[in-house]
Write a protein that binds this DNA or RNA. Structure first.
Length: 871
RNA sequence: GCCGAGAUGGCGGAAUCGGUAGACGCAGCGGACUCAAAAUCCGCCGAUGGCAACAUCGUGGGGGUUCGAUUCCCCCUCUCGGCACCA
């Protein structure tokens, strides 16, 4: 055995050993329990960042741990390879997106291999390859035929200078990120997936996901947003024609308090008013300014303008004026809302701003309504009862809603209705680097799906990106085609699919990446039975990706792609990793565009709270602007490349450090302080094993009498085995597992005893440590285990199990509290009963001093833990 | 704005079901070894008062429940994530 710990050499040797033995290869084997361990696949942005290292180390620890428990483990990896950054890189560096993407995949794959992850690379896939996306196109055509994909208008961000659609991320303060031009909303035809048809099921089945974090289930529940309310109409007559203004409300009990209605700028009534009043037309134009991101819409100043159009209140017949509100969205519900300023905070603020009437129709006993300021109870559903509401006076919220819904229904003007916040999923993107939408537009036959035998529609890879519109729309070779129905000239769809589509089913394709005849096969049934056993990924995917994936597997189920029982929930257990965050730094160019600078290139000064308060660019010594602390990302250029860390210390130190730094679900601000400590620990472990081995190998302790110290060490060893197994398996908290092993090793070195018995116990401890740490630092454990047990490979050993006989204790120590404060401790027999413990506690010096002869008021005994005397 | 989460020493964090707050590690300080340094090993390390024993305070802020609260409840502040075209 080498005297020095040389990670560079031993890591190469260990990886060669695993490669030779095919240790990570996953082969279907119905005789063994399977464990499908899945990490969210990376976008090939260029280099790995610490978030990737964290994500994939967690996955690898769980995969290796379960392999040691005897499971048939599948740990695959692939590339979420389509997306916007490739087009941006193409513009910046004049290199085709495909070339940039494949180069990144090559580099990042090398990095993943260097980290020693037990990945079955034979199953690798990249979503930009036709072998992958052809099946997505195939399913698209099935869903289109079933009506689960349909076309309608959707609103997008339009850059009037670059003449292109922008992503929300590309709109900064209402302006295009490249042109700087004010963004407008524009309606264009798009394809939508009918996720709302599955809203009820997606919501209900959340309750059947005990392996998911509560917070994620709650976020999805709120996102789907089921509410019961009333959809009803305000009748009107306009230019002699009758019409109805439909709205939805969850507070029909406040209907008698309606003092106006508000419609979206794109609403037909708004268009009508705009046509006859230039002032209204100007306001409608103003509402079209700005982007479509909901966060912006929700935080902008609420503005409105009256249309001069009046509608009739469906119950009291009053005339109610229709306003245009910039906060009303055409894409949500009917694009119109009723306004009850007295009982809705947003309406209250709006009414006060424009001097609109406020009519109280809900009262709470003991509270006084005032127009001066909004009070929480105005909207209180629980305590409020109807007032100033005629026949509904005195009714509670719930009964009033029912009564009003019944009356509206009798007039044919409305109905109770379940509504979801969830909207259909718009999947069209006016971008090049994505999966082509397999539709052909024929001037005679309309929009038709591409027939199976013509799939895949291949994305041409050799293009130049200009940033103005999609290059596909300028490539006749791509879009010129013939109609599959009439054979006449037709035009191929040039929009591509949202990249969330690829990531909604990649985990199924890992099971059968080589199947060129079907999307999925029986291997999916083997690996995904009961759901994927563990899914690991960032908490930022809690809603969109995870909801779309749940939706997509149901679509595949309903197309009949799964056997029996069909898969519905793709992920049985979910671990949401906290993000690795880092400070951001930037400079603004002459157009005010932010140029993000990597934290590795700046020197920052910190305030007393430890936050960066100022920074300079190392290259020129001049100041840069300090941004917020955000998740590591390509767009903010604050990712930290782990390569330097790996080069200096090796893969094991990188893995150990990231796992020791914090528990996996917690977000982690990156700092490399402490890396040295992780490396030091591995060196120390190496030295201890080397020292032990150099005096000759012995058999591990099995049985026989031991000194109290050795008995104590063995007890700690077996407690540690139990704790580490629990931390890996149940708690999925790895930092405490590492800490426990560190403590064990500290205890082991404190025993200065070279007797045969001591060396046997030490052998037992060290063998166990190399197995306990094997999932986290597999390379060094492989080398150390081989030194301790020549000819044995750690990665093929079973995970240790605790020896119950080593855990037995005769005496235990209890904490003594007086009035809940620590005042000492007492040793009692492990089997002592409550009365014995209480008597022993009252006999203690500390207790006698406090009691001074008086009787205690109360004595609380918590078995195995403490005694609290209340005086 | 809405939804979700978080806040504990100088720093990362521990305390798993309401029961010893600060495990483990980093940084720092002191010592051993060394010609010296590095490496390594040993010790100290929340605040205040005290020679000490010890006492008081202390888990973002304010209130509450309890014999006992980092943990449960209410209110507030700040930070992070998501908000449907970043992935």
């Amino acid at each position: 055995m080498q005297e020095k710990y040389l990670p560079a050499e031993l890591e190469v040797a260990a990886q060669e050993l695993w490669d030779r033995s095919g240790a990570a290869r996953a082969i279907e084997d119905p005789s063994r329990p399977k464990y499908y361990c899945l990490s969210m696949f990376p976008y090939p942005s260029g280099k790995l960042h610490m978030g990737h290292v964290r994500n994939y180390t967690i996955g690898d620890v769980l995969a290796r741990f379960h392999r040691m428990l005897g499971y048939n483990v599948l740990q695959p990896m692939g590339w979420d390879a389509f997306g916007m950054p490739a087009e941006n890189a193409a513009m910046q560096h004049k290199v085709p997106p495909a070339q940039w993407t494949y180069a990144n995949i090559d580099y990042m794959k090398t990095q993943l291999k260097r980290l020693g992850f037990a990945i079955d690379w034979t199953r690798e896939l990249a979503t930009c390859r036709p072998e992958y996306y052809r099946w997505e196109q195939w399913l698209f055509t099935r869903l289109y035929e079933k009506g689960l994909i349909y076309q309608r208008l959707g609103t997008v961000n339009w850059d009037p200078v670059d003449q292109t659609v922008l992503a929300n991320e590309q709109v900064i303060d209402g302006r295009g990120w490249r042109s700087g031009a004010p963004i407008e909303k524009r309606e264009i035809p798009m394809y939508y997936m009918k996720i709302t048809a599955y809203a009820e099921e997606l919501l209900a089945d959340l309750d059947q996901l005990p392996g998911w974090p509560e917070q994620v289930r709650l976020m999805q529940k709120n996102w789907i947003g089921k509410s019961t309310g009333v959809r009803f109409a305000f009748p009107y007559e306009l230019d002699g024609e009758a019409g109805q203004l439909w709205v939805f409300t969850t507070r029909a009990d406040t209907l008698m308090g309606v003092t106006f209605c508000a419609v979206a700028a794109e609403h037909p009534l708004a268009s009508h008013a705009a046509a006859r009043d230039p002032q209204v037309a100007a306001f409608v134009e103003e509402c079209k300014r700005g982007g479509v991101a909901e966060a912006d819409l929700a935080t902008m100043e609420k503005k409105g303008l009256p249309t001069g159009i009046f509608v009739t209140h469906p119950l009291n017949g009053e005339q109610v004026e229709v306003w245009i509100g910039n906060y009303v969205l055409m894409g949500y519900g009917d694009g119109a809302v009723m306004a009850v300023p007295a009982h809705d905070e947003r309406d209250f603020v709006f009414a006060r701003k424009y001097g609109l009437p406020i009519r109280q129709v809900i009262a709470v006993a003991g509270e006084v309504f005032s127009l001066d300021a909004w009070q929480e109870w105005y909207a209180d559903k629980q305590r409020g009862v109807c007032v100033n509401s005629g026949k509904y006076d005195g009714l509670t919220c719930e009964t009033a809603v029912d009564a009003i819904a019944a009356d509206l229904s009798a007039k044919g003007l409305g109905e109770k209705k379940v509504q979801f916040r969830l909207r259909d999923w718009g999947i069209s993107r006016q971008r090049y680097w994505g999966c082509p939408i397999p539709i052909v537009h024929c001037p005679r036959c309309g929009a038709l799906p591409v027939p199976d035998e013509e799939l895949p529609v291949i994305l041409p890879e050799d293009v130049a990106i200009t940033g103005a519109g999609s290059p596909l729309a300028r490539m006749p070779g791509f879009y010129q085609c013939t109609c599959p129905q009439c054979g006449g000239p037709a035009r191929r769809e040039t929009d591509t699919l949202d990249t969330f589509v690829e990531s909604s089913w990649y985990f199924l394709r890992y099971c059968c990446p080589d199947n060129d005849r079907a999307m999925v096969d029986e291997r999916v049934a083997y690996w995904c039975a009961g759901g994927i056993d563990q899914y690991i990924g960032g908490i930022e995917h809690a809603i969109l990706h995870l909801l779309y994936a749940r939706f997509w597997t149901r679509l595949m189920r309903d197309v009949g792609l799964f056997g029996e029982p069909p898969l519905a929930e793709p992920f049985a257990n979910l671990l949401t990793q906290g993000m690795v965050v880092a400070p951001t730094f930037y400079r603004e160019d002459s157009h005010g565009k932010k140029l993000w600078i990597n934290p590795a290139e700046v020197d920052a000064v910190h305030d007393e709270r430890g936050r960066a308060s100022g920074a300079t660019l190392r290259a020129d010594g001049l100041p840069v602007v300090v941004g917020g602390i955000e998740k590591m990302s390509k767009s903010k250029n604050n990712g930290v490349d782990p390569q330097a860390l790996i080069d200096q210390y090796g893969a094991d130190t990188a893995r150990l450090f990231i796992m020791f730094a914090s528990p996996p679900e917690q977000s982690l601000e990156w700092s490399d302080a402490g890396v040295e400590g992780a490396f030091r620990f591995l060196k120390r472990l190496w030295r201890i094993v080397h020292q032990h081995v150099s005096t000759g190998l012995v058999a591990p302790h099995v049985e026989g009498n031991l000194s109290a110290d050795l008995k104590g060490l063995r007890r700690q060893l077996h407690q540690t085995i139990a704790k580490v197994a629990d931390d890996y398996g149940r708690r999925k908290q790895f930092n405490t597992a590492i800490a426990a092993v560190m403590e064990l090793l500290n205890a082991c070195t404190r025993i200065n005893d070279d007797s045969a018995a001591a060396r046997a116990v030490r052998q037992e401890v060290l063998e166990a440590v190399t197995l306990l740490l094997n999932p986290i630092v597999p390379h060094v454990c492989e080398a150390l285990h081989a030194a301790l047990r020549p000819g044995c490979t750690a990665s093929s050993q079973a995970f240790p199990t605790p020896d119950a006989s080593a855990l037995v204790q005769d005496e235990i120590e209890l904490v003594l509290q007086i009035n809940g404060k620590l005042r000492g401790s007492l040793r009692v027999a492990a089997a002592a009963d409550r009365a014995t413990i209480e008597a022993a506690a009252l006999a203690c010096d500390a207790a006698c001093r406090q009691l001074a002869g008086a009787a205690p008021r109360k004595v609380v005994v918590v078995p195995g833990r403490l005694v609290n005397i209340v005086v």
